[in-house]
Design a protein around this nucleic acid. Structure first.
Length: 468
RNA sequence: GACCCUAUCGUCUAGCGGUUAGGACACCGCCCUUUCACGGCGGUUGCAGGGGUUCGAGUCCCCUUAGGGUCGCCA
């Protein structure tokens, strides 16, 4: 079945031997709104995956025709977002400056710098009677016939005119203020940049008829199209700017790792088959192809992303783990720099695999990096009860004798004291944990106490005893 | 209003005419255990509805319903 399109099959079968000129050229063409939508990020990812899978070229083009709301900061949101995800582009801007340096032979890669191309093309249409002036604007003479849209994902789509289009099929390509509109510039840029495959959101499917007609008017065969399904909210509604998880930036802020986000995004509308969930991006590149993309929209499930993120953190190299932890703690106002590096690393190692988001870390292990433990008052009332006082006192007495204060020794002491008192170890663990961390959950108590050190632990226990 | 796309557990998906409809997240038990996680075992939950085609349909066709998209001098 994947051989419906012979051209594509021949191509992917001999990817390494085809001449460069036949290699796919795909682009991600976002508008700098100051915001990178998670759906846009997925579109970028799919384009990138296809380019990397085929050995083609991934191009970044900035559609900044709307000068009013475009700023370098807004462009940087896009550049930084793609960089964070690891989606490197082969052609496109190097900086957010529209007049700045870029890489690739098809520049400029900012639409604001390509005006003369549009003007030239419009004049060509005008002179051939394919477009005409209408009250100061310029309209394209659109075909009245239905247009067949061959789509690599959806299949052949026959697009008829809507009732409104029946009344006025000719659409504006240049506004009366002289500014060319999206449909026009998008097509011209794709044409002039030799884009071979347009991979974009399904929201553009209906408009593709216009684009195909425009390509033909320019005397060029349109590229191949692949319209990918959209990402919706968990409740099935459209994900808008305000919805949780809509902004790519928020993922970095909340402590997701880019590998997890890329992995999760890959799984939306595409599947590696074989019941695989956590999958390295290189494997995705190897397996990815357009015809296997699903046709229905997907809903964004943050819970599953969190799970995946936890999986990535669990398997993360220590250095990177430490780095991301320290960054997350700093973002929460905890300066680890004032503690010895060995202490910091040892403390963080007790947390590895225990949380899903770096954003949780400060709450989980903040006690390591604070002078005083903040104890949950409600739990204190439940755990720091009079009957625990003699137990904790006995524990403290034994603990104070320990030398060295290792986690093995600490653990053995808890066991011995519990046995001596004829109680379960847990009876001692709960008040001791609350005394040391201020919370009911945390890293292994014995390890954490060893890292905190004897003096600090005894001090915490003293403070707890005062409350009993 | 018209046009287009889509439809398997709550969610992401496997399935491409014959399956006890599989996996993952989430959820619920049990086990492990110094807390929380992790891990292990088990469980609840699904082919939107109706017609066809066929010996046989989640799989093919049609209709309905539902969801999404588009019809701008927005991108």
């Amino acid at each position: 079945m994947p051989c419906q399109n012979l051209g594509v099959c021949l191509f992917s079968a001999s990817v390494k031997t085809v001449p460069n000129i036949m290699k796919p050229r795909v682009r991600f063409a976002p508008s700098p709104t100051g915001f990178l939508h998670i759906g846009g990020a997925r579109t970028a990812l799919f384009n990138w995956l296809y380019a990397r899978h085929t050995g083609g070229t991934f191009i970044l083009r900035i559609e900044d025709t709307d000068a009013a709301r475009n700023t370098q900061e807004a462009v940087n949101v896009i550049l930084n977002g793609l960089r964070w995800l690891g989606l490197d582009w082969d052609e496109g801007p190097i900086t957010a400056d529209a007049t700045g340096p870029s890489k690739g032979d098809y520049g400029p890669y900012f639409q604001s710098q390509r005006k003369e191309n549009y003007q030239r093309r419009v004049e060509a249409l005008l002179s051939r009677g394919l477009a005409y002036e209408d009250k100061g604007a310029i309209r394209f003479r659109m075909t009245r016939e239905p247009i067949l849209i061959p789509d690599l994902v959806v299949g052949d789509v026959r697009r008829e005119l809507t009732d409104r289009e029946e009344v006025e099929p000719d659409f504006v390509i240049v506004r009366s203020d002289g500014e060319p509109v999206f449909h026009l510039v998008n097509v011209i840029d794709d044409l002039e940049m030799n884009i071979t495959h347009v991979i974009r959101g399904e929201d553009h499917l209906s408009n593709t008829a216009k684009h195909i007609a425009l390509f033909r008017a320019f005397g060029v065969e349109p590229p191949k199209y692949a319209h990918i399904p959209l990402i919706l909210n968990l409740d099935g509604t459209k994900m808008s700017k305000r919805d949780k998880g809509a902004s790519l930036t928020s993922y970095a802020e909340e402590g997701y790792s880019p590998e997890a986000v890329v992995n999760y995004l890959s799984l939306l509308g595409w599947s590696p088959k074989g019941n695989r969930e956590k999958i390295p991006v290189q494997d995705v590149i190897d397996l990815f192809d357009l015809p296997q993309i699903l046709r229905h929209n997907a809903r964004f499930d943050l819970t599953k992303l969190s799970w995946l993120n936890g999986e990535y953190i669990r398997d993360m190299a220590d250095d990177r783990f430490h780095e991301l932890c320290i960054h997350a703690l700093a973002a929460a106002g905890l300066d680890t720099g004032v503690y010895p590096l060995d202490y910091v690393k040892a403390a963080l190692d007790t947390c590895k695999g225990k949380f899903k988001l770096f954003g949780e870390l400060a709450g989980y292990a903040g006690f390591y990096f604070k002078e005083n433990v903040e104890i949950d008052p409600q739990l204190a009332k439940e755990v720091f009860i009079p009957e625990n006082k003699p137990r904790l006192e006995r524990l403290k007495a034994e603990l104070s004798k320990l030398e060295p204060f290792t986690h093995e020794q600490v653990g053995a002491t808890f066991g011995a004291v519990a046995k001596e008192l004829g109680i379960k170890t847990g009876i001692l663990v709960h008040p001791a944990r609350l005394a040391c961390c201020g919370k009911p959950a945390g890293p292994s108590l014995y390890h954490l106490m060893a890292i905190l050190g004897k003096d600090r632990c005894l001090d915490c226990i003293d403070k707890a005893l005062d409350q009993m």
